[in-house]
Design a protein around this nucleic acid. Sequence first.
DNA 1: CGTATGCTCAAACGATCGTTTGATTCATGC
DNA 2: GCATGAATCAAACGATCGTTTGAGCATACG
Lengths: 205, 205
Amino acid sequence: MQTSPHSTKERILTAAEELFARHGFDGASLRQLTAAAGVNLAAVNYHFGSKDRLIEEVFRRRLDQLNAHRMAALSRIAGQPETTLEDVLAAFIKPALELSHEGSGSLFMRVLARAFAEHDDTLRKFLSENYGHVMRQFTAEFGRLLPQLSKEELYWRVDLVTGALTHAMSGFGMIQRKSDVTEHVHREQTAEHLIRFAAAGLNAP
Amino acid sequence: MQTSPHSTKERILTAAEELFARHGFDGASLRQLTAAAGVNLAAVNYHFGSKDRLIEEVFRRRLDQLNAHRMAALSRIAGQPETTLEDVLAAFIKPALELSHEGSGSLFMRVLARAFAEHDDTLRKFLSENYGHVMRQFTAEFGRLLPQLSKEELYWRVDLVTGALTHAMSGFGMIQRKSDVTEHVHREQTAEHLIRFAAAGLNAP
DNA sequence: CGTATGCTCAAACGATCGTTTGATTCATGC
DNA sequence: GCATGAATCAAACGATCGTTTGAGCATACG
């Protein structure tokens, strides 16, 4: 089994990511998908077993990396006395922005936003079981830094922040980079913007 | 043509709203939909012309009322010197919460959240053409109350607020009413919660 | 050389999709 | 009471869906 970026499996995953982002999981057919990837129709069922398993692999490929980066950034600051709310938000947001701005994977946040809108139980269970611990760790750290909030209020505000960030990062084009700033600088500015908004919301009186 | 709440058209619209919320626009078939409504399969094409036109009518039925309430509330306070950010947010949020908590229409905000996730051009164009002026009026009033923000920053923050509220209001169950408060009181408490978060985010330094 | 093994391919499977048809029912106005 | 139109119905239309099949191709190993 080869894993080069031009292997059949990777070509399918990349095409699937784009078409799922654009047309949804139901809206993108395996025939469009395999045509875009330049592979045979049967290749999806041969390599992944079914369309549902392909959808899971699309998530797994990006979320494994994204959440590893998030957890690494969080573990560097969690529990430290000098850690600020902005630090924790940066640990959550910046890995996602890096993913969004890479040449490949720039459409993945849109796929993720669709997964939020889908209240499909199977998909939610898959995401919760495999990646729920990341949200729990971040929520715990937010709670440590916001001791004045009740548990209920904390969950509420974390949910609002999640919604805002998912919505923002799935809407490309909204954030147009000006031609006189590098992509790195632009990404830093976007992160600062999101962090400032989220910190203020979490800290609301 | 009758418009009673038990007419065929209304029964289709109500069943469509629920199934679109649960399974998406592609995921809910006309056969499920007409079976749930207790009408013949051909009734959709007879009364609405096509599935796409049915989708538009599902939006129109709720959004006409929702945006009328929003505009009425806004026009009562817009431009007034004593109007606060919280007042404008209340004019935006409370009509949506009233819709969410009515027996019928409680699933509509989930349909709306799906429409945000769908980057389908036809649907976005329909929503923008028919209801875009409401968002523009609210954004203008936000801008009047937040003169320190550049136009770019203003759009950014309004977009973040929209994402947070759509996400929050589409997730039912999250906001569980305690048995010792009336639904009216619970709605007021929820509104206060959302408004406080959004106002703090908009006012971020 | 022969034969496994991993992979690709065209073709077909049955199911389900949105839509259309033509007959039938039913209430209304003359 | 009869004609007219709207509304409903079962049935079928062609298209497309996810999935399966079995033959064909390539590379690697004995």
